[in-house]
Design a protein around this nucleic acid. Structure first.
Lengths: 243, 243
DNA sequence: GCACCGCATTGACAAGGATCACATTTGAAT
DNA sequence: ATTCAAATGTGATCCTTGTCAATGCGGTGC
């Protein structure tokens, strides 16, 4: 009963493909459950940032860290997936930064002091937290690398791979998922113009790499071609595979 | 005698402006010193990444995380300053990522297991580590925001502010420092072309915002004008001030 | 059914940077 | 001093991408 809130795309197989393996690796978290509150949020809700001392751990769903860089322009700075740790209170100063759910999301919430005392007691939890924070750091580094070194089309291919890693269900050779982000949100994440994004997606459909049934429903028809479009595809797969 | 290796710019005042306050805040680290080795590296040396289980803490100097995104193009993914924590072994998979010193640098090196056991013993150390990792995360978020939302000139202004925060010594109204990064390295950090960077620097000099004595010697003549060039100057100052 | 709204697509155009080519400076070695 | 290689500055040009505006599509309420 803990897997009902996963995003649309994985509806059919959620129990086995999304939540179950994710939770399996988080045995270190099991003992934390007694000390934590469970939260369920709908799409497009903002995590309370001011709550003093609170830490969130994502159990399922998708959360974005957004930054109002300019009045006219917002930026999606980071995408957070199940297992990821959010600690708004720790951020020394994040002017204009907020965390928003991009799909229905289940969170564990606990206080920083609880986490610390549990970490002192439980070495496995310390391992988990350090490992996880470092994985998140590595993902941000990859994100920067993509923004810095890749063309728009390559970046789009990279995000599609990333989404496929986290949300995709294989469907007879093809891989299908619902993109939880709107066109504008994808553009914010990839630092490109929404119109340009449209053009690129159309091109990928025309080249038969992708197919789209409805707005958000994406099917990757040719995974190899998609990977060929993104020079950093190996790194993306490595850092975003569900383990 | 621990402050002789700081970068050129701060030679005259290093004892008071660079190393001393930095070390003062790291009381949590004091106890770690017994468990750690001290390393001194010259400019342009690569930290051993394969050393299993090792964690580095920067005592002075400047380290860059670089990524060979494409054969032709490398990216500077992160700049690390005194107090920052580097844990190459923790990175689950960072294909092509390496850490290089950008100036003479002093490091503390210790094993991950030592760090963990010390953290279990010492709550203040846990605080320090979590705080620090989060500060580093916030800085990377800001970096992404800058790459995504700002024009080249605004990004350059942002980096100059950042460098001034970490390395600058005020010099009768103006602020002076030696830029430890070469033109190409700055370009890699800001995701722009080295030629374009040259033009922007020339423009800033022409506008009398900056002056340059030698190649790397930069003096900020008009701090307010420089801040006006960068829409995210407040965030830069907040996340990069020496505290 | 229709009108409506928000969101996505597409085209024409402009502009910011990248690229290339070449000149210039720097500083270390001789 | 002189030389040389490497790093940097700068101009002309091209191209990718952003901008603006018009159109198309998909739901929702009437």
């Amino acid at each position: 009963m803990t897997t009902t809130n996963v995003p649309l795309a994985t509806r059919q197989h959620s129990a086995m493909t999304e939540a179950a393996p994710a939770m399996a690796e988080f045995t270190a978290l099991a003992q934390l459950r007694g000390h934590a509150q469970n939260y369920r949020l709908r799409r497009r809700q903002v995590l309370p940032a001011s709550a003093p001392d609170s830490v969130y751990i994502i159990r399922s769903g998708l959360v974005a860290a957004e930054h109002a860089a300019l009045p006219s322009r917002r930026t999606m700075v980071e995408l957070l997936y199940p297992g990821d740790i959010i600690s708004p209170s720790l951020l020394p100063l994040a002017p204009g930064l907020s965390h928003t759910t991009m799909s229905a999301t289940e969170l564990l919430r606990l206080s920083l002091s609880t986490l610390k005392s549990e970490m002192a007691r439980d070495g496995a939890l310390t391992d988990f937290v350090l490992q996880r924070l470092n994985l998140q750091r590595a993902r941000m580094q990859l994100h920067i690398s993509m923004l810095a070194a890749l063309t728009s089309e390559q970046r789009v291919a990279g995000l599609l791979l990333q989404a496929a890693c986290h949300l995709g269900v294989s469907n007879g050779g093809a891989i299908a998922f619902d993109m939880p982000l709107s066109r504008n949100e994808v553009a914010e994440y990839l630092a490109l113009n929404a119109d340009t994004l449209s053009r690129i997606m159309s091109r990928l459909v025309r080249e038969n790499v992708l197919a789209r049934s409805s707005r958000a429903q994406i099917t990757i028809r040719n995974m190899d071609a998609l990977k060929a479009h993104c020079p950093l595809s190996d790194a993306v797969s490595a850092l975003h595979s569900r383990r």
